[in-house]
Simulated scan of single mutants.
Amino acid sequence: MFLTRCLYKITEQDLGRHLNLPFIDKLRVYVRGGRGGTGLKKYGGIGGQGGNVLVRGKRHLTLKNVYEKNLTKRYLAPDGENSQKMRLNAMSGENLTIHVPLGIQILRDNGELIDEINDIDDECIVAHGGEGGNYKTFFQGQPGETAMVNFDLKLLADVGFVGYPNAGKSTLLSMLSRTQPAISPVPFTTLHPQIGTVVFDDGRSFSIADLPGLIEGSHIKMGLGSRFLKHTLRSKILLFVIDINGFQLEIRSPLRSAFDSIVFLTKELELYEPSLLHKPAILAINKIDQLDDKTKLNEFYYSLNNYKEILKNDYEEKWCPKNFFHFEHIVEIAGKYGTNCDHLCSLLRRSLDEHSDRNNTKIKFSSSF
């Protein structure tokens, strides 16, 4: 008894150890369907079905909210009622519903996809209740399903930022939307994804996801951005934010030019998921307010226009992406002062509308067969 109490206290102290995290995009929980009720053999009574454990989408919810509501991460559906003389067909146990944010993938421990929750109407049973006792089961109620399931969040944002640390992504997000992220000249200020919403005067809006900056090796889980590469998969458009002055991770690291940034970021995305290179992309060249003349810009545009020749002559083969982004638009901005940010918003809106029209056309074309 003493040992049990000690273990219980340790478990209590462990509860909520993740509550200090500002962002949770993975949550592993235990689910168990309710046990079926016992049948009444003498009268042929049937026990109630055990309750199911359901997962349902809900707006304005985060995985952290889900965790806060149940720190034990155990979801046990009620058992079915036993058959009685006055009620031979016993009542089933109530279903237990776990509300989760939209954009959740439900996975087994082996990585098998159970289902996805992308809308408030989406619903999935993750643990079925046991069968109530009947003549097939010798009137013994059957246990419900048990499982460990993983909720893996992939943000549903219209536009996903891609860039190195300290490229000015958070500053740009604050200028484009009403979001107030942490902003600092120090790299890696953004420690978790930020979602902002751009609202136009006519009521039209779209969402933007600012992700922690990537570094070389992010596809093999190096750096903070490695955890959040998956969030780019569901973005309709990728917005590259590039510092025209280049990027240097630390004093001992080589200084990467603006074109280097495009090459290495493209390679990181390709190594993580090649299909990302087929997404529509827009390029924002940031911090043009720091330029004394057009030299760096001219060199960058020359490299971009002659990228095949440049890659062949100046880069090791391992760093050369097999495909290269063809940016729909290129905008020179100064995110700190809002220079050309309105123009960038208009281009993003136009590209999203075109993306939507293309998808609608594909749906109409496929449904005609």
Rank of each mutant, 00 (worst) to 15 (best):
H329F: 09
L173W: 08
Q140M: 10
N166F: 13
E317T: 10
L191I: 05
D314I: 05
K85W: 03
T137R: 02
F247N: 01
T295L: 13
V55W: 10
S207C: 04
K26M: 12
R204W: 11
V263I: 14
G33F: 07
T361H: 14
C6Y: 02
S226R: 11
T11N: 11
S368A: 08
G130K: 02
F247W: 15
F365C: 00
V149F: 02
T146E: 15
T190Q: 12
L102G: 05
G168I: 10
L176A: 08
I106N: 04
Y164I: 01
K267G: 04
S207V: 07
M91V: 00
F151A: 03
R17S: 13
T146N: 07
L19F: 03
S351E: 15
T232H: 05
Y8N: 13
F264K: 07
I220R: 12
I282Q: 02
E123M: 08
T72R: 12
F264T: 00
I220E: 03
H192A: 14
K73T: 09
I195L: 15
N305R: 11
R349H: 08
F264N: 03
P254F: 15
K42Y: 09
T339I: 14
T62C: 06
R32N: 06
K42Q: 15
F188M: 03
N70A: 06
I330C: 08
F228L: 03
V126Q: 00
E94K: 14
L255R: 02
I237M: 06
N245G: 12
L191T: 09
S92P: 08
N313W: 08
I333R: 00
G130R: 04
V241N: 07
T62N: 09
A157T: 10
E270A: 14
I104F: 05
I104D: 01
G36Y: 03
C320Q: 13
L113N: 05
V31P: 07
G36P: 00
P101N: 08
Y302V: 01
H355W: 10
L238H: 10
Y164W: 12
D14C: 07
P193L: 11
N89Q: 11
L304E: 05
P165L: 14
Q84T: 14
F200V: 12
D289W: 11
L238Q: 09
E317W: 07
G160F: 09
Y43W: 00
N70I: 03
F200R: 03
D289T: 06
S174M: 06
E354T: 09
E131T: 05
K85I: 10
R17I: 02
F240S: 01
I98H: 04
L3W: 04
D353K: 07
L15E: 06
S218Q: 08
G93H: 11
C345I: 03
N110V: 04
G33Y: 09
L291Y: 13
T197D: 06
K230A: 13
L348N: 07
I242L: 12
K336H: 07
Q142G: 01
L229T: 07
E94F: 09
E12H: 11
K364E: 02
S205V: 07
S83Q: 10
L352Y: 06
P101S: 09
L61P: 00
L15P: 00
L71A: 09
R59S: 01
